[in-house]
Amino acid sequence: MRKMENSRLFKLWMVVSTLIVLISVGFIIGYIVLNGIKSISLDFIISSPKGLPLGSEGGILPAIVGSLLLMLIACGFASFLALATAIYVVFYCQSSQIENIVHIIVQCMAGVPSIVIGLFGYTFLVAKLGLGRSLLSAGLTLGVMVFPFIEVRIEKSLQEFSTAALQSSYALGVSKAYTLFKLVLPQCKEDIVAAITLAGGFAMGATAPIILTGAVIFAPIPSSLSSPVMALPFHLYILTGEGISLEKAYATALVLITLIFAINIISIALTSRRKEVGS
């Protein structure tokens, strides 16, 4: 009897937990989509914020462009360095001690809260280096944030490459660089791009690192790296925090998550294609 009851409770626990999670996701997405769709329009996407207070009318084009640019700078900067670091650790590093040091530093950095990275960007890039609150400062700060994220994923993918195939390549007298470019990178390409796009979604949604490094309440589409930018998450924060316009906030949230999901879907599609090819 007792056993039966335990087993029921256990099953109930699993089912209720699952329902809670699924309902939460459904609620969050439904809430944003249903509310957002009412106040979104083409005009909202292709025009600049207007009205008084600013943002209560008009659209969010500069914020969309700003967010995309920030993502581009962050990912470009971080993935270039992360790819090199991962390649070094997996293929060129001879000593396991150096490998450990790299891992420790990367792990350390991954553990730094994003707001503290923002604090660093504000003090060092904006103030000390005099880059000002700009696209560049914010992009680089985001880049520092996503570096560990990208490096860890690329390194894992490279590490998974078949050792036997590597040895066979070296056994033909072929150099490391050739092996990398002709054998390893083509094989890991999808994983690498997936890691970078995923990081792009992460960077695009991040607010804390850009509050003081570049995001502003209003700016036109940036004309140079040193212009301040609007960004979707920051714009959403301002619209809500200052109580400017709830409708615009819903629509902004919808645009933001749509963009991020689009990015994630690209990344998932890439990863699953890789699986098919590899089989």
Partner: peptide, 24 residues
């Protein structure tokens, strides 16, 4: 599919969570 749904949860930016938290 369920894993995809969980990934969606992980991909929602924190400011959107804050927004919903505040309003709901």
């Amino acid at each position: 599919i369920i894993r995809g749904i969980i990934d969606i949860l992980a991909g929602i930016p924190s400011v959107v969570y804050g927004f919903i938290g505040l309003l709901v």
